[in-house]
């Protein structure tokens, strides 16, 4: 059994030309946990994910996964350590088929020369077909990803992350643009993933958050405002204040 790898952000600050997007943030997520990250617009949620996956470099502070410090690693090195990222705007390879998308995401051996000598036939693709089935794209394996509907594209990107098989998955608004039914199916899937992997989910849809959340972290103006279960957060006066005018997160 591998050592459990917790994610730990210590005193992380991110400044863009004087604007402080993330301000002295401390956040700890235990291995296998599903953490929801919520907060009003501009709270710094997406920036926090960017800092973890290397898209943005923190101005100060330290980010660790287990014993590994992530601060100075490049994006692909962070990905190889086992961190996957789903973007707010669904990002898939539109000119490739669903199956080819999954093959690319399945990145056990990322080296150039090794891959130049590998041909698609020899690969274990059964697992990938099962993944496609899991997200309901089994019948679309040979379709171009660019021809999928918006919801299907979101699901494809989730499947890509599962094909990549990271220990920690960062999800930025995974249900954006999904129908209620699709959202419910996504919640089901996430509940199944819990425990095997660590998930950090940034989401606005509170119904969805309530369905999947164990612990919620609330961010406001770059800081961690509150942390706790759904019930605790709903009662928290500071959170009510932050969501002023919208009557607290229940109505958000």
């Amino acid at each position: 059994m591998e050592a459990r790898k917790d994610l730990k952000l210590s005193n992380v600050t991110m400044r863009f030309n004087g604007f402080v997007a993330v301000d002295d943030l401390n956040l700890e997520v235990k291995a296998g946990e599903l953490r929801c990250l919520i907060g009003p617009n501009g709270a710094g949620k997406t920036t926090t994910l960017d800092i973890i996956c290397g898209k943005a470099k923190a101005t100060s502070g330290e980010i660790r996964l287990g014993d590994t410090v992530l601060n100075h690693l490049e994006e692909h090195e962070i990905a190889r350590i086992g961190i996957g990222r789903k973007f707010q705007v669904p990002s898939v390879f539109r000119q490739l088929t669903v199956r080819e998308n999954l093959l690319v995401a399945h990145s056990r051996q990322p080296g150039v020369l090794r891959n130049a000598l590998r041909f698609r036939r020899g690969e274990d693709t059964e697992g990938l077909d099962k993944l496609a089935e899991l997200v309901g794209l089994r019948d679309h394996l040979h379709r171009l990803a660019g021809h999928l509907s918006h919801g299907q594209t979101q699901w494809l990107e989730i499947a890509l992350l599962l094909a990549q098989d990271p220990k920690l998955i960062l999800m930025d608004e995974p249900t954006a643009g999904m129908t209620t039914q699709e959202t419910r199916k996504t919640a089901e899937l996430f509940n199944r993933l819990k425990g095997n992997r660590t998930l950090i989910v940034v989401e606005h849809d509170m119904a969805f958050v309530k369905e999947i959340a164990e612990v919620i972290s609330v961010m406001h103006q770059g800081k961690l405002l509150a942390q706790g279960t759904v019930a605790q957060i709903e009662r928290d006066p500071a959170v009510k204040e932050a969501y002023l005018g919208s009557g607290g997160i229940s109505d958000a």
Partner: peptide, 20 residues
């Protein structure tokens, strides 16, 4: 080869490839 497939993926969406 798989490298050829990854190249096409890079042509399509460079950043997505990086985060894999």
């Amino acid at each position: 080869s798989k490298a050829g497939l990854i190249l096409q993926a890079i042509r399509d969406h460079e950043n997505r490839v990086r985060y894999f």
